[in-house]
Nucleic acid binder design. Structure first.
Length: 568
RNA sequence: CGGAACGUGGCGCAGCUUGGUAGCGCACUACAAUGGGGUUGUAGGGGUCGGAGGUUCGAAUCCUCUCGUUCCGACCA
């Protein structure tokens, strides 16, 4: 490709509305352009990268035995009524209708459609297991799209759905998909981690997420520093920190604590460590208000709380008026002693003694509180966020934290959808049986952004070799006037192209500095600078985008040299 | 959805307080010089100021409504 025949529009200035580096660089290089909130046009340059990622995904999915197909993006509302997921997805569903006022959703995911397809196509256990996938545009009406294509509303996802006669078969395919995902992200060239995850609105029994490690990641990944354990913070088990409850040593005492409304201020006021205090949070429950109790220095894990049977879903904190009605005081003084309602305590809290809590009366706290003697709880649950330094749940090492970008999520769905939609097969005994399902998502457009987050410097993108839009950039100095430079550049271009190497030759009439800056921004892995200066010695210059060190290479051997570099 | 801000050529911004029918940088076009790190000069093209309504002799500027965008919080590939 010659730049004059390509669409290359770079920008020197950082766009004002781009927060993170990948978004900035994608706009500056001209890979994407914004059409509206969370809507992006993929320019030819961006699409090249996107398609490379798609192809890697295809190859690995095919190799893992999955079958590519394509389902409609627009889905009849009736399908969603069958599974009752309209509520789960809520406002994220883009509702549309046709001229006859029939209702549709623009698909945010395709469990319903595939299950409908399979219930009609698959009738016998002999057709199982089977795994279908597609690479397709999805739409989720995100409340807050941001970070360019990292969290856009319209995006491209690879989604796969597997069907099985039994759980063992599901697990087998699940493991295959896990391996395929590992291969895909490795081939793309990114540093990632597979972690335990909450299944959220998709549902099912078990799931794992694939996170590309990057400081700008929206998720916190907890991992054992010395072991194998890794989990999304929202899923990461927080072990109880006290082995057993010490005997009570203090008498309960009501203390006047004027204007002390936060754990920090109460602890400072009473001159105790925050670990001696507890925090009581009131949320809406299924039957009655629920008090969720965590240690003062811990934070409530809302995903875990949301998953509790006694807690109303979605999780909702009581507002000031409700708190007053339930506890008889304001939010800063709630406590467990005398609390009327369902009380859920964190594992750590269950083992505390002589602790401090609110007195359910404004400006008063209790000290020396002890379970059984002074207060009681209904359940012990893991409801807090794990913290750096906590013991790893698998007993190996302690936890540390990293930021991650979720690029993939695999689920063991079980029969949630097949039961709801009556997707059954006849088993060997001729009996009707709901199929077991797995589903496996991967954010294709997000992967592009994640790759940039992980591979850039102050000059621009540094593409991993397997997804670079071009492998080689030929940068001729004074292409327009120097016959010699022009001929050398053209010859090299033809030669590399004929070998199937993707080359971009910058034949624009621009100054050297401009051209070099542009290609540093674009991040093409291998760059060849052709100028009269080196040609005087029958040489050209080679630079690798990673280290940017110039190497003089003979004009006669540059072709082989490049082929070697690309292979390496 | 709650909180904040912004909307002026393709991009980044000034002008708005103290109304008098638009300006700067980048980009773009032409010519010339330059020719190894976003060079320089000259000459150009392009906007009626998000939209609607109002106040006024007169509105980018004041008022009202509306649409859009972005940022901070709860969701997800």
């Amino acid at each position: 490709m010659r730049t004059t025949a390509f669409h290359l529009v770079t920008r020197k200035e950082t766009p004002q509305d781009a927060e993170i580096i990948s978004h900035q660089l994608m706009i500056r290089t001209g890979m994407i352009r914004k059409l509206g909130a969370g809507l992006y046009t993929w320019a030819p340059l961006g699409l090249k990268v996107l398609q490379k990622i798609e192809n890697i995904i295809r190859e690995e999915m095919n190799a893992a035995g999955a079958l590519e197909m394509l389902m409609p993006a627009v889905q009849p509302k009736e399908l969603w009524q069958e599974t009752g997921r309209i509520e789960d997805f809520g406002g994220q569903l883009l509702a549309i209708h046709d001229r006859a006022e029939r209702d549709y959703f623009f698909g945010p995911t395709h469990e319903e459609v595939i299950t409908d397809f399979v219930r009609n196509e698959v009738n016998s256990y002999k057709q199982l297991p089977i795994n279908f996938y597609q690479i397709q545009t999805k739409f989720r009406d995100e409340i807050r799209p941001r970070f360019g294509v990292m969290r856009s509303r319209e995006f491209i996802m690879k989604d796969a759905y597997s069907f099985h006669l039994n759980h063992e078969s599901l697990v087998e395919t699940y493991e295959k998909m896990k391996l395929a995902y590992t291969n895909i992200i490795s081939r793309i060239g990114l540093d990632f981690r597979c972690v335990l995850a909450d299944s959220g609105a998709i549902g099912g029994s078990g799931s794992q997420e694939f996170h590309v490690i990057a400081d700008s990641g929206e998720d916190a990944i907890m991992y054992s520093e010395t072991g194998e354990y890794a989990a999304n913070l929202e899923k990461c088990e927080a072990v109880g920190l006290l082995d057993s409850r010490a005997a009570a040593t203090a008498e309960i005492e009501k203390i006047h604590t004027p204007e002390q409304k936060t754990i920090d201020s109460v602890a400072a006021f009473l001159q105790v460590d925050k670990t001696q205090t507890i925090k009581t949070l009131l949320v809406a429950g299924v039957d009655e208000p629920v008090a969720l109790v965590v240690r003062g220095d811990h934070s409530l894990n809302e995903v875990k709380a949301n998953n509790l049977a006694s807690v109303a879903s979605p999780l909702r904190m009581l507002d000031d008026d409700e708190i007053k009605a339930v506890a008889g005081c304001d939010a800063g003084s709630i406590g467990v002693k005398g609390f009327k309602g369902h009380v859920v305590v964190d594992r750590t809290v269950a083992n505390m003694s002589d602790f401090i809590c609110g007195a359910n009366e404004n400006d008063y706290h209790f000290t020396g509180v002890n379970w059984d003697r002074d207060a009681s709880f209904d359940e012990i649950q893991d409801i807090r966020d794990a913290q750096v330094g906590d013991p790893s749940p698998d007993g190996v090492g302690t936890l540390n934290v990293a930021r991650g970008i979720e690029v993939g999520h695999i689920f063991q769905l079980g029969n949630k959808y097949s039961k709801a939609m009556n997707a059954v097969v006849l088993n060997e005994q001729g009996k009707s049986q709901a199929m077991e399902m797995g589903c496996y998502g991967m954010g294709v457009t997000r992967m592009v952004a994640a790759a940039i987050e992980q591979n850039h410097d102050d000059k621009g993108i540094i593409w991993p070799a397997n997804i670079a839009p071009f492998a080689v950039a030929i940068l001729p100095m004074n292409y327009q006037k120097s016959e010699r430079v022009r001929r050398t550049a053209d010859e090299l271009y033809e030669s590399l192209t004929s070998q199937g190497i993707e080359v971009i030759l910058d034949d624009r009439k621009v100054r050297p500095g401009f051209m070099m800056s542009d290609f540093e921004l674009l991040g093409i892995p291998h760059q060849v600078i052709i100028g009269d200066r080196a040609l005087d010695e029958n040489e050209v210059e080679y630079r690798n985008r990673t280290d940017m060190e110039s190497i003089r290479v003979s004009r006669d051997t540059i072709n082989d040299f490049l082929a070697e570099q690309i292979k390496a």
